[in-house]
């Protein structure tokens, strides 16, 4: 078994430990951050869209709404802090 293992490792091409895959993954993460800082207007646009959609369902405090990209270990998360002032009584729009 060990021999087969060794041979497989020796001959395998698409090993996920290939350094190019490591490079791609690292770049992907770092670019999410770089790109968001190059264009704060994208975050701004996202905020406006969020407000529009969420306002269909609940009343929110638009001025204290916060949207950020957080970098944690091996992932990037979009973290939104949206204070809710109250729920709307009307039916959920379809």
């Amino acid at each position: 078994m060990a021999v087969l293992d060794f041979l497989n490792r020796m001959f395998s091409r698409e090993n996920s430990n290939n350094s190019k895959n490591i490079a791609k993954e690292r770049l992907r993460l770092v670019l999410v951050h770089d790109r968001s800082s190059v264009s704060p207007e994208i975050i701004e646009a996202l905020k406006e869209d969020l407000i529009r959609v969420i306002s269909n369902y609940m009343e929110i405090d638009e001025r204290s709404l916060e949207v950020n990209l957080n970098n944690e270990d091996s992932s990037v998360a979009l973290v939104a802090n949206i204070p809710v002032l109250g729920l709307k009584r009307r039916n959920v729009p379809r």
């Binding site: 490079a23 690292r26 670019l31 770089d34 790109r35």
Partner: peptide, 18 residues
């Protein structure tokens, strides 16, 4: 094809478009 050059290229593309 290096991470440093590609990262900088990405930033430059953003600045060019801006």
């Amino acid at each position: 094809p290096e991470v440093s050059a590609i990262r900088d290229a990405d930033r430059i593309i953003g600045l060019l478009e801006a």
